[in-house]
Design a protein around this nucleic acid. Structure first.
Length: 257
DNA sequence: ATGGTAGCCTTGCTA
């Protein structure tokens, strides 16, 4: 089963790009982030016509996550547990075949020093607690999405310049590690040890042609999923196209049980 | 050289 994640930076603006990529690569599950529309405005019919089911949680203008899938989703859970007052649409989770999948849009957290940063850290603690619950189930699962975290300096084009940014600072990396070290596997790093491979390039200052990127989109696998991991790649193709998202898709292949 | 882009609606905010 191939599971992909892609921050599309508005599903309406990116519809032709996403439809083309699905037609070309045929993922079994595609997690989307920053869809930037309410659920009833999500262009579900266009994906259904390609044979995909759509599960989505959204809000106007900001955030929004979805999971597209060939198989029907079971046991859909919209929203990350742990704060009933949090209305930001950043988390949806469902089961496909024997694999549980989450589409995650983790808060950016900038600027550090505003309320945005403690919100990011609290959200990560909620994700850690959710991960503990999922691990206790002993099922195969994949937590896929835009984590807004560069795990190490190898994942940043300019580590010194970004040292105090919410995506790179030590407190952020510690929180990310506290989740990964529960026993998850960064699927991409199983196959690619070399530094400076990225999934995001800012629109500004010619970041894409200069390869000034960040690796912030991750697929974190439970032990039961990691045992079946066959491959993982960043597909840089979509970032080079017209009207591209600033992120490009990342995917992994999970073999049969 | 103190910049630059994209998308949304809030013509500022978020990233």
């Amino acid at each position: 089963m191939r599971i992909a994640t892609w921050n599309v930076n508005s599903i309406k603006a990116r519809l032709p790009n996403v439809l083309e990529w699905i037609a070309k690569t045929s993922p079994d599950v595609l997690c989307l982030q920053e869809t930037k529309c309410q659920a009833h405005d999500f262009p579900a019919l266009e994906f259904q016509s390609l044979g995909y089911q759509v599960e989505v949680i959204g809000q106007k203008s900001y955030n929004g996550v979805a999971i597209l899938s060939k198989e029907k989703a079971r046991d859909v859970m919209a929203g990350l547990p742990g704060d009933d007052l949090d209305e930001q649409a950043r988390y949806i989770e469902a089961t496909f075949g024997d694999i549980r999948v989450a589409s995650i849009y983790l808060p950016n957290g900038n600027p550090v020093g505003t309320e945005k940063y403690p919100y990011k850290l609290r959200w990560m603690e909620r994700l850690r607690l959710r991960t503990l619950d999922l691990l206790a189930s002993e099922q195969a699962f994949v937590l896929a999405g835009d984590y807004n975290i560069c795990p190490t300096d190898d994942d940043v084009y300019d580590p010194v310049g970004w040292r105090e940014d919410a995506l790179c600072r030590q407190e952020s990396r510690d929180a990310f590690r506290s989740i990964v070290h529960l026993g998850l596997t960064d699927a991409f790093r199983v196959f690619h040890a070399e530094p400076h491979l990225y999934s995001f390039w800012d629109y500004q200052a010619g970041a894409w042609p200069k390869d000034n990127g960040l690796r912030i989109d991750h697929l974190l696998l439970s032990p039961q999923a990691a045992d079946r991991l066959m491959g993982a790649e960043i597909d840089k193709g979509p970032r080079g196209q017209e009207r591209a998202s600033d992120h490009t898709p990342v995917w992994c292949e999970i073999g049969p049980a």
